[in-house]
Design a protein around this nucleic acid. Structure first.
Length: 265
DNA sequence: GCGACAG
DNA sequence: ATCTTGTCGC
């Protein structure tokens, strides 16, 4: 692991990943987040168990999304962290992975995983409630400080403008973006055929993200802002992280790791 | 009202 | 997401 990257002192379990104003979830106060419990990836006390409860949490947290920061400068030194999860519903098990890469060289700097019970059923628009607890636990186990978190799914491209990437950003305070493989419910025109070509991802007349061609002749990915990053930079980071394949290396590394961890455990 | 619907 | 055979290509 290359020296020169900022590190947080372990153990991180009692310390917030980043200074974020306290908020409450249900009746429970999360200083920023996740917490202690044991060292599992179980959802914290107060994690919603109903759709109505989850909708209420989204409604309460959505205005905490920060959209007026440009985010990390593409080309500058950056620790880009990919997060993803794999499931075994039969065993009520979810495994999350967080893989930190040097955004310049794509070298793997650090890997972490966390396993726990499935926190929520899959409901379109409420994906964060299923994935976030385990993802937070995996992020906490990294010792490098993420400069950008790349999520598998959406941020602002969400019916209530609060997808997984935005949710994770608000909870951690970290800059986040969403990279999805399918366009969810939004409309777009096919981007040009070359790598780097893009077209707006539209909710009516509102651009909620971008269909971005990362490889020539390959279908685009769908990029949206999560938290503390603008859309131009989000796309620039995705392009740089995907020099060879359709999906960014962050996503590929995290996907691979959580699947291996699920199969192993 | 019914279906579609990130992962 | 996950269930899954073979197949084309580097």
């Amino acid at each position: 692991m290359a020296p020169g990257y900022a590190r947080r002192p372990p153990p991180p379990h009692r310390a917030p990943i980043a200074p974020v104003p306290p908020f409450t979830c249900g009746r429970v106060r999360w200083a920023v987040m996740i917490p202690p419990r044991d060292d599992s990836a179980a959802p914290p006390p107060g994690w919603p168990v109903t759709e109505a409860g989850a909708l209420a949490v989204q409604d309460r947290l959505r205005d905490r999304v920060v959209l007026d920061e440009p985010g990390p400068e593409p080309g500058a030194p950056l620790v880009a962290v990919g997060v993803d999860v794999a499931y075994d519903d039969a065993r009520d098990l979810v495994v999350a992975a967080a893989v930190a890469l040097d955004a310049g060289t794509l070298e793997v700097l650090e890997e972490a995983t966390a396993a726990g019970p499935v926190a929520f059923p899959y409901v379109p628009g409420l994906l964060a409630f299923r994935e976030v607890p385990a993802v937070l636990a995996a992020l906490e186990r990294l010792t490098v400080t993420p400069g950008l978190v790349v999520c598998d799914g959406y941020g602002l491209a969400h019916p209530r403008r609060f997808g997984l990437a935005s949710h994770l950003g608000v909870l951690t305070g970290l800059p986040t973006i969403g990279v999805a493989k399918t366009p969810f419910v939004f409309a777009y025109d096919a981007p040009g055929p070359r790598r780097g070509d893009s077209a707006p991802l539209l909710d009516g007349a509102e651009e909620v993200g971008r269909a971005l061609r990362t490889q020539e002749g390959v279908k685009p990915v769908f990029v949206s802002v999560g938290h503390r990053v603008d859309l131009d930079r989000a796309c620039a980071h995705v392009l740089r992280l995907a020099p060879r394949y359709r999906l960014p290396e962050t996503t590929r590394a995290a996907d691979s790791l959580c699947r291996r961890a699920l199969a192993a455990g």
